[in-house]
Simulated scan of single mutants.
Amino acid sequence: MMQHHGLTDQQRDLICQHRKYCLSCAKHINSPEKLDVTEIATATSRHAGRSAALPYADGLPRV
């Protein structure tokens, strides 16, 4: 769970209640097909590696 620094117990309780309310209102997505997220995961990991600006021996990121 996220930490809320500098908040009172009452404020934290209100945030928790609001979060539970929002989650109860969210509708589940029924998809007849299994979602293929491998393309998204690959693009995300490549972007994370590039944005980290890590030095590479040959100057090129590993793919």
Rank of each mutant, 00 (worst) to 15 (best):
M1C: 13
M1F: 02
M2H: 15
Q3P: 01
H4E: 04
H4K: 02
H4S: 03
H5Y: 00
H5W: 09
G6F: 01
G6K: 00
L7A: 13
L7I: 02
D9Q: 03
D9M: 04
Q10P: 11
Q10W: 07
Q11T: 02
R12L: 09
R12G: 02
D13E: 13
L14W: 11
L14H: 10
L14S: 01
I15V: 15
I15G: 02
I15A: 03
C16Y: 14
C16P: 00
Q17L: 06
H18V: 08
H18S: 05
H18Y: 05
H18G: 04
R19K: 08
K20G: 06
K20Y: 10
C22K: 14
C22P: 01
L23A: 13
L23W: 13
L23H: 11
L23R: 12
S24R: 04
C25Q: 12
A26N: 03
A26K: 07
K27G: 00
H28A: 14
H28L: 10
I29M: 06
I29V: 05
N30E: 13
N30R: 08
S31F: 04
S31V: 10
P32C: 06
E33C: 09
D36E: 01
D36Y: 09
V37C: 13
V37E: 09
V37R: 13
V37I: 14
T38V: 14
T38C: 13
E39T: 13
E39W: 10
I40A: 01
I40M: 12
I40V: 13
A41G: 02
A41K: 05
T42C: 13
T42P: 10
A43F: 03
A43I: 06
T44L: 12
T44K: 12
T44R: 08
S45Q: 13
S45V: 09
R46F: 09
R46D: 10
H47P: 00
H47E: 11
A48G: 10
A48S: 02
A48E: 12
G49Q: 07
G49W: 00
R50F: 01
S51D: 12
A52S: 04
A52I: 09
A52V: 05
A53M: 08
L54T: 00
Y56L: 09
Y56F: 06
Y56T: 12
Y56C: 15
Y56W: 14
Y56P: 03
L60H: 05
L60G: 10
P61I: 05
P61F: 10
P61L: 04
R62Y: 11
V63E: 07
V63M: 09
V63I: 15
V63P: 01
V63F: 15
